[in-house]
Amino acid sequence: MSTPLSAVELAASGLRAQAVRLRHVSENIANTDTPGYRRKLVSFQQEMDFGRATGAVTTSPTRLDQRELPRIHDPSNPMAGEDGYYSGSNVDLVVEIADAREAGRSYEANLRIFEQARQMGSALLDLIRR
């Protein structure tokens, strides 16, 4: 049965999932210049309860982006091999910023639904309060 309370829970699951995504984005951005760092990715999936979708959303386990690491020429770098190249990170800042924007937008939408569900629940309680 769907009640305003369960809408609150659904919105909370969305908030949690978007927060995890935002966290990974900030990890990626922080490690843009870390040599050998692979971009972390999470995708979203519906939460399953004994094979039935509950409607809530969860994040999948973290995956690493398997795209090839760029080779950077810098013989003075301590990580550089004999040929003067070292592997950088495969983080693309533009992609990360776009991802952060989208996560922020979805987070805000979830927050509005959360607020509305909460207000609807308390309006219903107001009916019996007087």
Binding site: P4, A7, E102, S106
Partner: peptide
Amino acid sequence: QGLAARNVANADTP
């Protein structure tokens, strides 16, 4: 409202 909350929560679910 429950359905709308579910839709928004899954706004990025493939």
